[in-house]
């Protein structure tokens, strides 16, 4: 993809009907959509990162060298809605024959999880963050006033505020493309189908099958991260879930995240007790002052 005519070029490259997958039902409410990211087939090409930047016309983040393997993107942020992690492990993967020494690569394309209980959405005081008809979590840029409360509400460190812009930004699940019945740019561009987009219920079946295949082949470490409420009760499941082969921390994912609002009841209870005590102290102080004067 060249810089020249990027807009028209991207529309041609990614536009049109997406190939593969079940035909989409016409009419009626769309079914919940999501991503199944199978990290075992990711080759770290970063086509998803590029496709995302190009389609969404996101500005670049500067060009810097981090020394973190081949990862110079570092993390998800306001202008980075897909991020490929590069993990060099000193241990081989089960069922894998290492070419040289004891070593394995883990590669993962990270993205906004579009949680069932979304910390960002539940914290947003302006109503800028909404759940769309596709069950994705979307920030309306014309409403967001940049208060920053979604940023600390996200247990995955996905959403961020861009300094020059002042508003919070994150993956939209390519809301514009979904409205036109196209799959998100990252999934479209992924050459190995590590990123699979579709109806959530179908993706779950697909992921279960893939997990079984891997285990049969001897990759006993494989497991699904955040596939449903049972596997991640704190978020009640992720609309963008992953197949991983090592602990979540290795991929910079939290092992047991929780939507902050799920647990703020004890905070409110504690505050209620404290303010009642304060009112009692005020009454005591004033009454003692009145009595003392007589």
């Amino acid at each position: 993809m060249t810089a020249t005519g990027a807009t028209s070029a991207t529309h041609e490259v990614f536009g049109g009907q997406s190939g593969g997958g079940a035909p989409r039902p016409k009419g009626g409410a769309p079914r919940p959509k999501g991503f199944f990211t199978d990290t075992t087939v990711c080759i770290g090409c970063k086509a998803c990162e590029v496709a995302c930047k190009e389609w969404n016309q996101l500005p670049d983040d500067g060009f810097s060298f981090t020394g973190m393997s081949y990862d110079n993107t570092v993390d998800l942020g306001a202008s980075t809605w897909r991020h490929v992690s590069f993990i060099e492990r000193p241990v081989p993967l089960s069922g894998q024959v290492a070419g040289q020494g004891s070593f394995s690569w883990l590669l993962m394309s990270d993205v906004c999880k579009h949680c069932q209980r979304a910390g960002c959405l539940e914290n947003c005081p302006t109503g800028a963050i909404v759940r769309t008809e596709f069950d994705s979590v979307y920030v309306q840029p014309d409403v967001c006033n940049g208060c920053g409360y979604c940023i600390v509400g996200c247990p995955f460190g996905v959403i961020d505020r861009r300094e020059e812009d002042g508003r919070a930004w994150k993956c939209t699940l390519c809301y514009d493309r979904l409205k036109d019945d196209m799959e998100p740019a990252c999934a479209k561009a992924c050459p190995t189908d590590s990123i699979q987009f579709g109806d959530l219920d179908e993706l779950k079946v697909l992921a279960g099958g893939r997990l079984q295949t891997l285990r049969e082949r001897g990759v006993s470490e494989a497991y699904l991260y955040g596939v449903d409420e049972a596997s991640q009760p704190g978020t009640e499941g992720l609309n963008a879930f992953f197949l991983l082969v090592d602990r979540p921390e290795v991929y910079n994912l939290p092992p047991d995240p929780v939507a902050p609002a799920k647990r703020n009841g004890s905070g409110w209870a504690s505050m209620a007790a404290a303010v009642v005590a304060m009112a009692a102290a005020a009454i005591g102080a004033v009454v003692a002052g009145r009595n003392g004067s007589r």
Partner: peptide, 24 residues
């Protein structure tokens, strides 16, 4: 120089992040 590398002679901004302010 807004970091998008879209040629102003032929491209327009209308993507989801077209409105995002780029570093000055």
């Amino acid at each position: 120089g807004d970091g998008r590398n879209v040629d102003p002679r032929v491209g327009i901004l209308e993507g989801e992040a077209a409105d995002q302010t780029a570093p000055a």
